[in-house]
């Protein structure tokens, strides 16, 4: 408080003494303290702990006990054993991101330009699922896709369902991921489309671009910040998700890396290092992808 007050004095009156200048200088750092403390306590410290666990070994004979021996082979072992699940995570997350984009973009476009007085209603429809628990929503999907539910029974009646059921397939997992992260795709795109002046789109038409060309050359590039944010906000949590694969997937070929981490943490005695190593690998890959992605489509390119 004193520092703040000093800073105010320093701002409003002519700077006389040295101490006032100092007050002004340290204020921004003081303001950073709560945020930094929070970050250190709940991000840096757990990260360091996780990093340590990932290079520990289990104590023979005492499940749940570990000691640090710089066992970097945890990473090699985890990767060589669980690369299919890791790969599948990115594949499913990628598919879900593409699906969410294909569904979310037209939805956001309709909300921004065509909805008129229905805009608020549509907005509520997009946001409403947030008011229910993520897991309950996914369980509801299980009911919808159940064998005796409307979709599966119709497809079965038409002999269009090769395996006889939708749940326990990768399609159900990707559909669940798409559904659960759709709002994260739609809302950022909507907010960047909403800022597009309709006159600019008209200008595209006026300058000899037909509807599609105008979309491709004008509307889409202008909404890229939203697309960028939306794809990241969909892809990143989807890649780490395990609920959809757990509730909608099968036990053979749809488990994702999140399921492995969960299982190693909670069900396999002595699995903590593997789980931690996998968590770090997942994080590292996502960071690398993020870096490459923003370098390629980065915001400095847009506006």
């Amino acid at each position: 408080m004193t520092a703040l007050a000093q800073a105010q004095i320093a701002n409003t009156t002519a700077v006389e003494g040295d101490h006032r200048v100092k007050g002004r200088r340290i204020t921004p750092y003081l303001l950073l303290i709560p945020g930094l403390l929070w970050l250190v306590m709940f991000f840096v410290v757990p990260m360091v702990q996780l990093a340590i666990v990932s290079i520990e070994s289990k104590f023979p004979g005492y499940p749940g006990y570990y000691y640090l021996d710089w066992n970097v082979f945890n990473y090699a072992n985890a990767l060589s054993e669980f690369w299919p699940q890791l790969l599948r995570s990115f594949l499913f997350a990628g598919l879900a991101t593409i699906m969410a984009f294909l569904i979310g973009y037209p939805l956001a476009y309709a909300m921004a330009f065509k909805a008129g007085r229905w805009r608020n209603v549509m907005m509520i429809c997009v946001v409403a699922p947030f008011f229910t628990s993520f897991i309950l929503r996914t369980i509801a999907w299980r009911q919808i896709l159940a064998d005796e539910g409307p979709i599966a029974s119709t497809l079965n009646a038409l002999h269009l369902l090769p395996g006889g059921h939708i749940t326990e397939t990768w399609v159900a997992v990707v559909a669940g991921l798409t559904y659960n992260f759709l709002p994260f795709m739609t809302l950022p795109i909507y907010s960047s489309l909403e800022r597009v002046d309709p006159k600019v789109i008209e200008a595209g038409g006026d300058l000899y671009a037909n509807g599609l060309t105008t979309f491709r050359r004008v509307t889409l590039p202008m909404s890229m910040p939203g697309v960028l944010a939306g794809t990241l906000m969909t892809f990143i949590p989807a890649a780490g998700d395990y609920v959809n694969a757990d509730l909608l997937g099968s036990d053979i070929d749809t488990k994702m890396v999140g399921n492995v981490i969960e299982s190693q943490f909670f069900r396999v005695p002595g699995g903590f290092p593997t789980a931690a190593a996998l968590s770090f690998t997942l994080m590292a890959i996502i960071l690398l992808m993020l870096f490459a992605y923003t370098r390629r489509f980065g915001t400095e390119e847009l506006l």
Binding site: K199, V200, E202, A203, D206, P221, M222
Partner: peptide, 12 residues
Amino acid sequence: NTVFQSYALFPH
């Protein structure tokens, strides 16, 4: 061709 009131230039 039109010169729009708000100019409607392509910002990107």
